[in-house]
Measured scan of single mutants.
Amino acid sequence: QVATSTVRILGMTCQSCVKSIEDRISNLKGIISMKVSLEQGSATVKYVPSVVCLQQVCHQIGDMGFEASIAE
């Protein structure tokens, strides 16, 4: 089973930030795809909930120095 959710990301300033986040999160087990939008300050994450949760994704992004939260 696959889920798609949006994560809000604060602190991104350039495409390099976007690429860094996409590269790191895409390597997590259970992540199918991730598309980060600098303009919208968010990311669309396609993932397998039984393998990885959005809290883990937000935590990983937080470790990179950005502020991440699950969009309502």
Results as ranks from 00 to 15, higher is better:
residue 7 V to I: 15
residue 63 D to Q: 15
residue 59 H to M: 14
residue 26 S to T: 11
residue 8 R to N: 11
residue 5 S to F: 05
residue 72 E to V: 10
residue 27 N to G: 12
residue 60 Q to E: 15
residue 30 G to E: 02
residue 40 Q to H: 14
residue 22 E to H: 07
residue 53 C to V: 08
residue 47 Y to I: 03
residue 68 A to S: 05
residue 23 D to K: 11
residue 2 V to A: 06
residue 57 V to L: 07
residue 45 V to L: 11
residue 23 D to R: 12
residue 68 A to R: 04
residue 17 C to H: 15
residue 40 Q to N: 14
residue 46 K to P: 04
residue 40 Q to A: 11
residue 39 E to M: 08
residue 22 E to L: 07
residue 34 M to F: 15
residue 54 L to E: 01
residue 37 S to M: 07
residue 32 I to H: 03
residue 39 E to S: 09
residue 32 I to T: 02
residue 30 G to C: 09
residue 25 I to S: 01
residue 37 S to N: 13
residue 5 S to L: 07
residue 34 M to I: 15
residue 61 I to S: 02
residue 46 K to E: 15
residue 67 E to K: 12
residue 49 P to H: 06
residue 70 I to N: 05
residue 58 C to M: 13
residue 52 V to F: 01
residue 65 G to F: 06
residue 18 V to I: 06
residue 53 C to I: 08
residue 9 I to M: 00
residue 50 S to D: 15
residue 53 C to G: 10
residue 65 G to N: 04
residue 48 V to F: 15
residue 58 C to F: 09
residue 49 P to L: 06
residue 13 T to G: 03
residue 64 M to T: 02
residue 34 M to G: 00
residue 12 M to G: 04
residue 19 K to M: 08
residue 60 Q to S: 11
residue 49 P to Y: 06
residue 43 A to R: 02
residue 16 S to N: 12
residue 4 T to Q: 08
residue 55 Q to M: 10
residue 50 S to M: 07
residue 28 L to K: 02
residue 5 S to H: 12
residue 26 S to A: 10
residue 66 F to T: 02
residue 2 V to G: 05
residue 37 S to Y: 12
residue 2 V to P: 06
residue 72 E to M: 09
residue 30 G to Y: 05
residue 72 E to N: 10
residue 68 A to Q: 03
residue 36 V to F: 02
residue 64 M to L: 13
residue 44 T to K: 12
residue 47 Y to Q: 01
residue 7 V to T: 01
residue 13 T to M: 11
residue 70 I to P: 09
residue 11 G to N: 04
residue 21 I to G: 03
residue 26 S to Y: 07
residue 1 Q to D: 15
residue 47 Y to F: 08
residue 8 R to A: 08
residue 56 Q to R: 09
residue 19 K to V: 10
residue 40 Q to D: 12
residue 38 L to M: 06
residue 65 G to W: 05
residue 40 Q to P: 04
residue 29 K to Q: 11
residue 17 C to N: 06
residue 57 V to I: 14
residue 67 E to S: 11
residue 22 E to S: 05
residue 32 I to C: 05
residue 57 V to G: 03
residue 63 D to C: 07
residue 6 T to Y: 14
residue 26 S to C: 09
residue 42 S to E: 12
residue 22 E to Q: 07
residue 68 A to E: 02
residue 49 P to K: 06
residue 39 E to V: 09
residue 27 N to W: 06
residue 68 A to V: 13
residue 7 V to N: 01
residue 14 C to Y: 00
residue 53 C to Y: 05
residue 64 M to R: 01
residue 43 A to F: 04
residue 65 G to S: 03
residue 8 R to P: 06
residue 67 E to Y: 12
residue 13 T to F: 15
residue 60 Q to H: 10
